[in-house]
Nucleic acid binder design. Structure first.
Lengths: 349, 349
DNA sequence: AACGGCTGTGGAAACGATTCCACTGGAAAC
DNA sequence: GTTTCCAGTGGAATCGTTTCCACAGCCGTT
């Protein structure tokens, strides 16, 4: 007693294969046929075969979401939202780790095996070869992150520059004058554009002194290590971290050196993850809208699959600053809670 | 110029379809044929079609990982490890949210569509219908979590009872006598067995007074809400939380009431997530080995797919306690760092 | 009565791969 | 010089669906 196939159902219902298929798929068929086929299918416990269907229909009902690190809270947030949107449309989600640039390229090439109907890709590093591969591939694709000007691919953009500008403005308004930026690897998309944002936002602020530092990775440990070096070298009023993890590394290093946050050093993270809410003091953080980016990316890929001829779109998600204990309060504003505040943060913009 | 199929390659190489397939798959074929076919395939940029392959081979190269909440850090950790193991064996990972019990059941039934070669399932609630469905299904399955005695399904178990016992022992050794357990929903697998563990571990400890409370969900917010109620009602020396998220909720509630942790109230979480390391004070936490469970589950499903006739196995992962600032130090042991300690924790067992 | 249109039907051809089976030709064994 | 064996080959079947196409009725219109 192996698989129950459509042929078995047809035999039992006493109609042809063609009519059976039509009856089950709501195509044209008489009421009597539909009834008999339904019954036969139920009695046999018929379940259509996904592979056969995919082969014939040229669609799999699957989408891929590919990121460098599945563990990063930002990608998790994004993935959760994507899963929720596409599952509602009947798609399954395949997750892949992209690893390095070569692996990403392989992944994009492998798409032509046709195991998914579309791809949402958030590449850490964008190479010309990758852009070309993306433009070549016949599988609908949406990139979360920045591509070179003119790339004919749908993208969802975080406003890194705007987000970092929010952070810089906030720090300056709270009185900071010596502001450092602790970046991650600068050859990555986030590294590059957050750095760019920092430079732009501080360019015509002649009153501030700036500095740039680099962590080897976007992790707490790497942030901590880089922060030790940074804090040993110079005195800063404030640091903007390339993300919350690095920001938390900074908090640890500051605590270790006996530097009081926010009084002696203000710290701002990026991504506004749960970690920022939970750490001590709460980490003021710029929300680049991971969940909303995920949502838009999902919508975009669905639209693209619907109509492949749409002109490429670039959707941008607005940033917002969430103020917590790691930065000084604005003059006149109530100081939020002090150390280990109750959860919740003030949304400033 | 549509898809390049195997037939195109065969035509170009001037050999039959059969020989072409054999040449590409390393089956018996002359060196000359292999050479010509390889060349033709390269020139045409041939990429085999995944659906056609699946249909013919009756295998998809995909595995499913299904959990209630993709966002929960524990599942993320598990998933990351699973992805890493199965990707190395050439499998893609499909993630699904199971949602409620009915959705889980649907998911298991849908497996018979054959869109994956195996399933790793971590159900929050186990119903008899689910167990039956799991035993019925022809798709190899591994359950992460406890099933009823005698279920013929491979399982990976966290040692909830042993883990909670570690927590209880630790608290008693540090002097706690009034110990509460703040559970999540008790009709779930983690809720049930962690509660059971608490009862067993405290049963013959006549010197301790115990109490049990419930949060509506396994989240920070729900933990906070339940902790407010709990702390308002009675005085406790220590609380064991059903997981780190709830534990952090307790820390917030305690801080809000001005209760000092750990001096007036010790708190222990479960899962030993990054959050426990980052929050303030650091949350002592029982590690139930999410990553290792993921690893073992992945190995188990691979073995099961290899040989479906193996007798069902139950693999157990040992717990360990990671001590941080939220519990008092043992007499004679150096107190770990004080508030906002540098990351890292002492592994006690 | 002839005709057009419309609904339902079944046979057979896809979709793109793998593999069974029968067959060839040349080398090895007697 | 026959026989045996075996590597290598191509035709055709197969996996389980969907859908094209031709055709059969039946109804309502001229």
């Amino acid at each position: 007693m192996g698989r129950v196939t459509l042929a078995d159902v047809a035999r039992r219902a006493g109609v042809s294969l063609a009519s059976t298929s039509r009856a089950l798929n709501g195509q044209v068929a008489s009421a009597a046929t539909v009834e008999r086929v339904r019954r036969a299918a139920d009695e046999l416990g018929y379940i259509p075969d996904a592979s056969a269907r995919s082969l014939r229909l040229r669609r799999t009902g699957q989408l891929a979401f590919a990121v460098a690190d599945i563990g990063n809270p930002v990608y998790v947030e994004m993935m959760r939202e994507i899963e929720s949107v596409v599952a509602a449309e009947g798609y399954r989600l395949v997750v892949s780790r992209t690893g390095d640039a070569d692996a990403t390229l392989d992944l994009v090439r492998d798409l032509n095996q046709g195991y998914v109907d579309g791809l949402i890709l958030s590449p850490l590093r964008v190479t010309p070869a990758l852009v070309e591969a993306l433009e070549q591939t016949t599988v609908p694709t949406v990139v979360v992150g920045r591509l070179p000007e003119g790339a004919r691919v749908d993208t969802v953009l975080a406003d890194s520059e705007g987000g970092v500008a929010l952070a810089v403005d906030h720090l300056i308004r709270t009185g900071a004058r010596r502001i450092a930026f602790l970046n991650g690897p600068v050859d990555t998309t986030p590294g590059r554009f957050r750095q760019l944002g920092f430079r732009e936002a501080t360019a015509d602020r002649t009153e501030v002194v700036t500095g740039e530092f680099h962590a080897e990775d976007f992790t707490i440990d790497a942030g901590y290590a880089a922060a030790r070096v940074m804090l040993a070298a110079d005195e800063w009023d404030a640091v903007i971290a390339v993300n919350d993890l690095v920001g938390i590394g900074i908090l640890h290093a500051a605590h270790e050196r006996g530097i009081a946050v926010p009084d002696e050093l203000a710290v701002i993270g990026i991504d506004n993850t749960t970690l920022a809410d939970v750490c001590h003091p709460g980490l003021t953080s710029v929300d680049l809208g991971a969940a909303r980016r995920g949502h838009k990316a999902a919508r975009l890929i669905l639209a693209r699959m619907e109509d492949g001829d749409l002109p490429p779109r670039a959707v941008r998600v607005a940033p917002s600053l969430h103020e917590r204990g790691s930065t000084a309060a604005l003059a006149g504003a109530a100081r939020p809670g002090g150390p280990a505040a109750v959860p919740g943060s003030r949304r400033v913009r």
